[in-house]
Design a protein around this nucleic acid. Structure first.
Lengths: 344, 344
DNA sequence: GGTTAGCACTCTTCGGGAGGGAGTGCTAAG
DNA sequence: CTTAGCACTCCCTCCCGAAGAGTGCTAACC
């Protein structure tokens, strides 16, 4: 659709704009990238590219800026692939693949790393407990009316909540009930352990206030569909971007990002492809993110996609680096996670 | 030291400046606060207050602004006490005193609430595990070479880490070892469970790789003095303050706050008084925080101070509200925490 | 016919006054 | 001691002009 020279112009212009954040003029383009033609010719090409919607001008007599359509074309066809170098690689090995971490912590570390490496904000959706297999329940009395309920589920979920009862219970009560719950529930999919299921085994496992309290807590923790955890890291990086030199813009963006709900929407819009997905500006479903782009990738345990990790920055984003880094982190996160369950 | 009229002028001026963030002139002061004297008189008083260092002028022919010394006097002697109204009270009851939370989560919620209520950033130092009493250790096999180590300590600490061994272990191995560890360690102060102590009981409890791995993990988790957790919330609020309308300032402040180390310093400088402490501007030990004030208070379990919670904002801070709110939250947090251990 | 040099034109940005406004400090009178 | 009056200072805003960057068009060139 675009001839070779237009492609080269669009590529050079986008590269330049991504670097400088300033509208790019024909003279500059001719000087810095040897396109083999004069500024006048480039001007003609730029005018064509603008007519076709790949570029736009902030005002007459300014240089051009890629439009969302321009970025889209750049991302799909033009950009030079970027691969992590030694510093990025070693950071991933050091921080994501470090041992001794439960799954959620590992995922959280991956998000922090991604933010640091790209200098954008990073977002990550942690897997839902629902879909995982319950491995162990533990009841630890804190005092005679409070019990720590510890849940361990399959690929490395560990959660704890505190249950409170009116009538004192003993350590033996807790042990007996934990044994009963484990006998009947371990191996089940967490999402299937709803109130119904818990009511069914009430007779056998325990009855009494302790059972009811613990059961209620389990039901709400295990099968609450709104329990998706979303992390946001590196918000401070947003302030470094020249498009957010204005505090008001930065603030309104950050305000949007602070609502976990918005983040979930962003990540679900990104889909669950295992190859990095790029959402550019207006393609974004959320009003407040129309000047941002999101690069995200699913991560897996084995063949099963369990979450999404990505970066969020201005539309003028280093897409090549973002895509390369997201891919690398997602891959290694997946490998680290599968290692958590590999010997089963 | 200051006569009554000077006190009233300083008070009115500070109140006004805190509200408007604009230098306050004599005419304005005379109009808005009925001080019973003319602007000219107020001017004389203001000149005196400036000579004595309570005020300063950004430039000739601008109004006055309180200096750090002025704020200090205002905080110590002048400001009208502020007490939380129904909305603040109910928020505290709803969010801090809600049940089902482990201690650290409760503290974290208190910080979030404080940030929301004051519209400043909030900081909180969570108690050190070291000083608390170990209550329970649980070893849950995740697969045959990975074990979730769950620690429960006295006032509601729950932590988990994952230990990895080379030679497969069975569920029975774990149970046996957990029982042994509990028998020998429960009731001890966590900080006293160092490598020495763990080596002593090695013979009795378990030997072998499993013991060594778990022991190493316990030692690092229980007695690591650098493990103080510090939370920072409401950073976004900083951007609302007119003194941070300039992105660069906001960014450099937030960059300082993102280093947990700096936060620890701030909170330790605040001391551990149970009555709210105010640190104003230059009084702050940290270079980057010389234009900020911190209002903080210790919180307790029973009579023992276990941490510090506070808010951080520009020196032009609503001190009365900050102090009132910090006091209220710290008190209720202390009560909620003591409730965690009351039946022992 | 595509390419390029030349040029007039447009639009933003930046610096330098001018004018207005807020506030002060001083003086002298009450 | 207090206050009215007043000259003075300094900032802020607006406006203007110059500079600079970049364009689009035209006409010549290959």
């Amino acid at each position: 659709m675009l001839d070779e020279r237009k492609r080269r112009v669009l590529q050079a212009l986008t590269d330049d704009y991504i670097q400088t954040a300033e509208p790019v003029g024909s003279r500059n383009l001719a000087r810095k990238y040897n396109l083999g033609v004069s500024p006048a010719t480039i001007r003609n090409e730029m005018a064509d590219l603008e007519d076709e919607g790949y570029l736009h001008q902030p005002h007459t007599s300014a240089g051009r800026i890629p439009s969302d359509k321009g970025y889209r074309y750049y991302v799909d066809e033009l950009m030079a692939p970027w691969n992590p170098g030694p510093p990025e690689r070693s950071a991933v090995y050091r921080e994501v693949r470090a041992v001794g971490r439960a799954m959620e912590e590992m995922i959280h570390e991956a998000a922090k790393l991604l933010a640091r490496a790209t200098r954008y904000a990073s977002v990550v959706a942690a897997p839902r407990l629902e879909a995982s297999i319950l491995r162990h329940i533990d009841l630890v009395p804190l005092d005679d009316t409070r019990i720590v309920v510890v849940l361990v589920a399959d690929p490395g979920f560990v959660r704890h909540r505190i249950a409170e009862v009116r009538r004192p219970v003993t350590e033996e009560d807790c042990q007996r009930m934990a044994a009963g719950l484990n006998r009947r529930l371990v191996g089940m999919r967490c999402g299937d352990i709803g109130r119904d299921r818990l009511a069914e085994i009430r007779e056998e496992v325990g009855r009494g206030e302790l059972y009811d309290t613990v059961a209620e807590l389990l039901a709400s923790e295990l099968s609450d569909p709104s329990s998706e955890k979303v992390y946001l890291e590196g918000t401070l990086n947003i302030l470094e971007q020249p498009e957010f030199r204005d505090v008001e813009r930065a603030r309104s963006l950050l305000a949007v990002l602070e609502t976990k709900d918005a983040l979930s929407q962003v990540l679900s819009a990104a889909g669950r492809s295992e190859e990095p997905t790029v959402i550019i500006g207006q393609e974004n479903p959320l009003e407040g993110l129309r000047e941002c782009s999101v690069v995200s990738s699913a991560y897996r345990i084995g063949n099963e996609v369990i979450g999404v990790i990505g970066v969020l920055g201005p539309t003028r984003m280093e897409y090549a680096k973002a895509v390369g880094m997201v891919r690398y982190v997602a891959e290694h996160l997946s490998e680290a996670l599968v290692a958590l369950v590999r010997r089963r």
